[in-house]
């Protein structure tokens, strides 16, 4: 479905984020070790890897929150390390980030949170911003009734949705999602996945999603990239992942918690028993 959309956009293979040879480390330990990754326009890329493998580190490096020791990152064709300051700033306005805990400003209401980027970057009349805030809330599946609430009064799922609305405030081209479905119940997580897929279609977004949720990977991701040992060890569709013989991939995608694993067990393929991670 989303792949059709990729074709509809015409440029299915335009690289929107290009990560080359990136090294990021803390102390003597290099978390990302000469990592390469391409993200194409209009796709939903699921980024997986073990806890502590550095998924969030890569995301934070791309958006410029962490310094890197080497390599280049190009977003929308702009070199984010050495490119001109003005161009880099312009790129920063074209992405939105959904943090794991939402990172809503606790002293501002929902409406003000969503309007915050608009207020900073666009000179818009208050009336239009109010309408836009409601429009964005409706797009993420909430309604006008929550606009005057404070973040502390929201449930976990609502917080994620409001943060997504804030990430979408400036109509970004790219959205970074850091474990968007963590802490949500399966129904809420499923709804959130659907929401992301819908928004991706309506707004033509490129989505970079760090996730652990196998269901999200199955249902919404066009491509999956796997991080292990500081490198992307595999990237491709779910079928590629399932067909891979890499031990970690087998453990991850055929493990007890994966649907594929259950199917495999149901089919009596005992020989494909999950291989434990070392």
């Amino acid at each position: 479905m989303a792949q059709e959309n990729g074709k509809a956009n015409g440029k299915a293979k335009e690289v929107i984020i290009e990560v080359r040879d990136v090294v990021v480390g803390f102390g003597s330990h290099n978390v990302l070790n000469h990592l390469d990754l391409d993200v194409y326009r209009g796709e939903i890329l699921g980024f997986v890897g073990g806890s502590g493998a550095g998924k969030s580190v890569l995301m934070r490096t791309i958006v410029g929150l962490l310094p890197k020791r080497g390599g280049t990152i190009k977003v929308l064709g702009v070199d984010m390390t050495n490119g001109p300051e003005a161009e880099r700033r312009a790129v920063e306005r074209r992405w939105g980030v959904l943090f794991q805990q939402g990172a809503l400003f606790s002293s501002l209401t929902v409406k003000e949170n969503i309007q915050f980027p608009m207020r900073e970057y666009l000179k818009l009349p208050q009336g239009l911003m109010d309408e836009m805030a409601v429009a964005k809330l409706e797009m993420v599946g909430l309604d006008a009734s929550v606009r005057n609430k404070f973040p502390s009064e929201l449930s976990g799922g609502m917080t994620k949705r409001v943060s997504l609305a804030r990430a979408l405030a400036l109509d970004p081209d790219i959205v970074f999602l850091d474990e968007p479905t963590s802490g949500l119940d399966p129904i809420g997580a499923g709804d959130f996945d659907t929401l992301i897929a819908t928004l991706q279609r309506t707004l033509g977004l490129t989505v970079f999603m760090v996730t652990h949720d196998l269901d999200s990977l199955h249902t919404v991701c066009d491509r999956i990239a796997v991080l292990a040992d500081g490198k992307v060890i595999a990237a491709g569709t779910m079928e590629t992942m399932l067909a891979s013989t890499h031990p970690w991939l087998r453990a991850y995608f055929h493990g007890k918690r994966s649907r594929a694993g259950h199917v495999a067990e149901a089919n009596g393929q005992a020989g494909n028993a999950p291989i434990p991670t070392p």
Binding site: N9, V134, A135, E138, M139, D143, A144, T202, G204
Partner: peptide, 20 residues
């Protein structure tokens, strides 16, 4: 343009309740 159809449909359903 066909690409924007879904977006317009989305926004068509926005209710701006001015009530409360």
């Amino acid at each position: 343009k066909e690409d924007y159809r879904a977006l317009m449909d989305d926004l068509h359903n926005v209710k701006l309740d001015t009530g409360q």
